[in-house]
Design a binder for these strands. Structure first.
Length: 582
DNA sequence: GCCGTTTTCGGCCCGACTGTTTTCAGTCG
């Protein structure tokens, strides 16, 4: 049982308690614990096995620690099952629709008998919901819209969630008899932000024992198919995993083939045909007309297949990093030797968005400093929320000045890293900023972002954001579209116009590295680069552990073809400050 | 249910917005 599954179980308890009308603080305790578990880097199953004290973790006391042990040891949670006896578990997913919370879902269930998404859709279409007291036509429509969004997203899971199941499975398969290499291919290897399933590739002379070990993995819920060299299973978590075992001679070709994307592969094969070659998952062959018509993938002269490098070379191409294999110009670039030198994580010298206990962060300013030092950064910006985000304890002028005092005090003792005085300032509904101009001017780094009124008409939204970007004190537009992967659609506005304005004003756009956001996304970042808009990659950390989310931002940046020169936080602090407009 | 330089009980982040309402419950973040 992985942390994500434990977190899900705890969150389900919280959700069902909420529907049942339990003590709100008890509910929050389960929510807090779920968040802690989800963010924790070490698998709790390992902590349980080693007898480590779970109660050391924030928000986890004796009771929930017991629940975690129960989950790890039995895979079940008695209190969750008891709750599901009272309340249909399917109500939980209804509470995740926008505009529906526990109270309304409870009423829909009790008054209309709604239990599932389908029930809800039927009731909405039959105009039953708008007749309920406290509901109306707008709410009913909002529910239908929410269902439509959910249906579009539900099949794909976030990369970071898949990773929790992939890593232990890889370790397990590497111990398979005869497995010489084990790698993930597919969209996971290309590091797409979400994946539908996971493709694993194993190099082995004898495939049987590998397939055998794969289908007997303890986390397998069911085996969909198991052949000589190929198997498909569904894990207990619901994640589908495909396995393919190939011989060493074909490993590189198979890796190219199974990494994809489909579009990239089609383009490769097209290029091959023009050169009298045939590319398959077994290798690259030179084929005459008769051989090309044959079904045998080994017909003709066998040129390459053992390594990816060889496959690309046979096609007169440089090796192409998986993140850009989308047929978006990478093959042409590889042919001309003009592939970008993609950014790597160790090139970053600082993190430019994070929160502390001054607003909704979980760790103190100095703890964040320690964590940034531990990561080897030369600088970081502390960017707590502004007052409009009351629920985060956002800072007004008085609190901001108090924070500066603390920063000054810390800086006087801690000289090993440069602390930038920043703030994540809310963009208000009319595009004004949530802090006095005089104070904005005193900050080293002004990050602005939208946290409310996501649904403004596109023209108004564009105007609003443009106004903020054009404010003379602003340096960075953070999480520009406001999307939350699988949960909230991006705001409707003219991103291109905003990017042009950012370029004109010397304002950077953020690539928010949080795996729920990854905002801007790859294609949008590439557009930003094209328009000459500088990018910063920031974690938006709310606790020290979150600083490690940077790798997701880096992966996204690589998908966007970004090079170190495109990203401001690869620069020294002096260069950074000089390149941010004054 | 968790937590404790208010320490074993009594707090626990809370203001704004939305859609539904004539005074506010529910939701969001």
């Amino acid at each position: 049982m992985e942390n994500l599954e434990i977190a899900r179980a705890l969150a389900d308890v919280a959700g069902l308690l909420e529907i049942s009308g339990a003590n709100p603080f008890r509910i929050r305790a389960y929510e807090n614990a779920a968040r802690t578990v989800e963010a924790h880097a070490v698998p709790l199953r390992r902590m349980v096995a080693e007898g480590a004290a779970l109660t050391e973790l924030p928000g986890i006391g004796k009771d929930i620690a017991g629940a975690i042990v129960e989950l790890v040891e039995t895979g079940r949670l008695a209190r969750l099952e008891a709750l599901k006896q009272e309340i249909p578990g399917s109500l939980l997913e209804l509470t995740r629709l926008p505009g529906l919370g526990a109270k309304r879902v409870r009423r829909l269930w009790q008054e209309l008998g709604v239990q599932t998404l389908d029930d809800l859709e039927r009731a909405a279409r039959a105009d039953e919901i708008k007749e309920l007291e406290g509901f109306g036509a707008t709410t009913q429509q909002k529910i239908l819209d929410g269902i439509a969004v959910r249906r579009r997203h539900v099949e794909r899971i976030k990369w970071v969630d898949a990773a929790q199941f992939v890593e232990p499975l890889l370790a397990y398969l590497r111990a398979a008899p005869g497995a010489q290499r084990v790698e993930v291919a597919g969209s996971y290897r290309r590091h797409r932000e979400t994946v539908r399933d996971v493709d694993l590739l194993v190099m082995a002379e004898d495939s049987g024992p590998v397939v055998e070990r794969f289908v007997s993995y303890a986390e397998v819920a069911r085996t969909e198919l198991a052949g000589d060299t190929k198997a498909t299973v569904v894990l207990k978590s619901g994640l589908q995993v495909d396995l393919r075992v190939v011989s060493p001679a074909s490993y590189g070709a198979a890796l190219v083939y199974f990494t994809g994307s489909k579009e990239h592969n089609v383009a490769l094969r097209k290029r091959a045909v023009g050169r009298g070659l045939r590319v398959s998952e077994y290798g690259v062959c030179r084929v005459g007309e008769a051989e090309a018509a044959a079904d045998d993938p080994f017909a003709g002269e066998y040129l390459a297949g053992a390594e990816e490098d060889d496959v690309y070379e046979a096609l007169e191409l440089r090796w192409i990093p998986p993140e850009v294999r989308e047929d978006r110009g990478e093959i042409e670039a590889a042919a001309q030797g003009s592939l970008p030198a993609l950014i790597t994580e160790n090139q970053l010298r600082g993190d430019l968005q994070m929160h502390s206990t001054w607003s909704d962060g979980k760790d103190s300013l100095e703890a964040m400093l320690d964590a940034c030092v531990a990561r080897g950064y030369e600088y970081f910006a502390i960017t707590d929320h502004s007052k409009a985000l009351a629920m985060t304890g956002g800072l007004d002028e008085r609190k901001l000045r108090a924070q500066w005092e603390e920063i000054d005090e810390i800086v006087s003792r801690r000289t090993e890293i440069r602390v930038l005085r920043g703030m994540e300032v809310d963009i208000l509904i009319d595009g004004q900023l949530d802090l006095e101009d005089a104070l904005l001017a005193e900050l080293d780094l002004v990050v602005v972002s939208v946290h409310s009124h996501f649904g403004l008409p596109a023209a108004e939204q564009t105007e609003r954001i443009l106004r903020a970007v054009q404010h003379p004190s602003v340096h960075v537009l953070a999480h520009p579209t406001g999307r939350l992967i699988n949960r909230r659609e991006p705001m409707e506005f003219d991103l291109d116009e905003v990017l042009r304005a950012a370029a004109a004003s010397g304002v950077a756009v953020e690539l928010n590295a949080h795996p729920d956001r990854l905002d801007l996304k790859d294609t949008q970042l590439r557009r930003a680069k094209e328009l000459g808009v500088p990018v910063v990659i920031s974690t938006d950390a709310h606790r020290t552990e979150d600083l490690s989310l940077m790798r997701h931002g880096i992966a996204q940046a690589r998908r966007a073809w970004l090079e170190p020169g495109d990203v401001l936080n690869t620069r020294s602090v002096d260069d950074l400050l000089a390149s941010l407009r004054s």
